[in-house]
């Protein structure tokens, strides 16, 4: 059983969580070209290495961020979205 440490509920079985995908920017759709908008919609972070991503703890419906290494699968840290540094 793999554990994920939820910032709100502590370490829990990873099956209690839902993966919501890599963190992505929130560009203004009106300010983007069609090509850049398509890029925003369809391309996501996928480089082998450390990645910031969204997770949800299903029972408590709490959404948070994790930094995880996509090769070793090691979770480097988990934190509340309010702690996200601007520009990250």
């Amino acid at each position: 059983m793999k554990l994920l440490s939820c910032p709100l509920n502590g370490p829990r079985n990873i099956e209690e969580f839902q993966y919501l995908g890599p963190l992505r920017g929130r560009p203004d759709p009106d300010a983007l070209s069609d090509a850049d908008w398509a890029r925003h919609l369809f391309r996501a972070e996928n480089r082998p290495g450390a990645m910031l991503e969204w997770w949800r703890h299903r029972p408590s419906n709490y959404v948070f961020l994790a930094e995880r290494h996509t090769v070793t699968n090691a979770v480097i840290r988990t934190f509340d979205p309010s702690e996200l540094e601007p520009g990250a």
Partner: peptide, 13 residues
């Protein structure tokens, strides 16, 4: 697997 990963390991679940 339910999340992105570059790995060929198997999991019990």
């Amino acid at each position: 697997d339910p999340y992105q990963l570059y790995s060929t390991r198997s999991t019990l679940d």
